[in-house]
Nucleic acid binder design. Structure first.
Length: 287
DNA sequence: CCAAGGCCTGAATG
DNA sequence: ACATTCAGGCCTT
């Protein structure tokens, strides 16, 4: 009985390093064994003992305590590949981050890589975000929608975003004008939410799935980027046949349906474990 | 509905 | 050095 309890407690421990270094967040840095991260208009600090603190005491379920992680892990462990990935990274978790920051982050991410995404987001924050001091360190909060909406395209481009500058401004404008209400979308279904956010230019299937999984509480989202396609081809060629060479919108939809059929309603967690596993296999760099 | 080509940028490759 | 390729896609034709 004692042993079982210990095991259960052990399973609940969050592996902060691996969770931050799994492609879901970008504005985090480690300092003196503490992690500090920009989350919208707040700064979060995760101590070496795994406790999380909000600089502004804004309520957030960043660690997704609402999830029954043991149930989820049981649910997604449908095949030897996933079981192995889960076993390799037992404390890997999906965070629930600020939706607007997440939206802009993944617009910036398209056709890019982690280092460049991080660099662009840091520059955007430095240029358009509020300077803040916390634990004797300087931070810049993530830009508010209105500040990106009123910025010029060239100002945004100066942050290294390239052609995505138009998308960023457009997205910020939509949020500012409440043409889209990200908080409300948390209560919407997967399909409804996807339809809404895909209206933003620069947001396609993959980017939408990232935004929904990492900030809008849609755990059936399963972002299909180059890596995940490669993983499916490598380990799941028997289960998920790719009909076309390029992943068209229709193909993406069909594939997602098959994926949810296989992994279940928490498929997004499976994606996170598989992505982490394969990127580590190839020793890809994180933050 | 699918295929092909273009797009900012910067690090990696030859 | 300098040119080319490539990277967590998306949009237009």
């Amino acid at each position: 009985m004692k042993k079982l309890l210990f095991k259960m407690q052990n399973k609940c421990i969050i592996d902060v390093n691996n969770s931050i270094n799994s492609g879901q967040v970008f504005l985090w840095k480690k300092n003196n064994s503490n992690w500090y991260g920009v989350n919208g208009q707040d700064i979060l600090k995760i101590t070496d003992s795994g406790k999380i603190k909000s600089y502004k005491n804004i309520r957030t379920d960043f660690f997704r305590k609402k999830d029954n992680i043991e149930e989820i892990i049981k649910s997604i462990s449908k095949d030897p590949i996933t079981k192995n990935a889960v076993k390799q990274y037992p404390g890997l978790r999906i965070f629930e981050q600020d939706p607007f920051q997440c939206l802009i982050s993944f617009i910036v991410s398209s056709n890019s890589n982690i280092q460049k995404i991080k660099s662009s987001l840091e520059k955007l924050s430095r240029k358009f975000g509020i300077k803040t001091e916390f634990d004797n360190q300087e931070f810049f909060l993530f830009p508010k929608p209105e500040n990106l909406a009123k910025a010029s395209i060239n100002e945004i481009k100066s942050c290294g975003t390239g052609y995505r500058a138009n998308f960023i401004k457009d997205a910020a404008n939509r949020v500012m004008l409440k043409k889209i209400n990200l908080e409300n979308l948390k209560e919407y279904s997967y399909q409804e939410t996807k339809k809404e956010i895909c209206q933003i230019s620069g947001v396609g299937n993959k980017v939408a799935d990232c935004i929904m999984l990492f900030s809008l509480n849609k755990l059936e989202s399963f972002p299909l980027d180059r890596w995940m396609i490669r993983i499916l081809e490598k380990y799941y060629s028997d289960k998920f046949q790719l009909e076309t060479k390029t992943i068209t919108e229709k193909q993406y939809e069909i594939l997602h349906e098959k994926i949810v059929e296989h992994f279940g309603p928490f498929a997004g967690y499976a994606q996170q474990f598989l992505f982490k596993m394969e990127r580590e296999n190839y020793q890809k760099k994180w933050l």
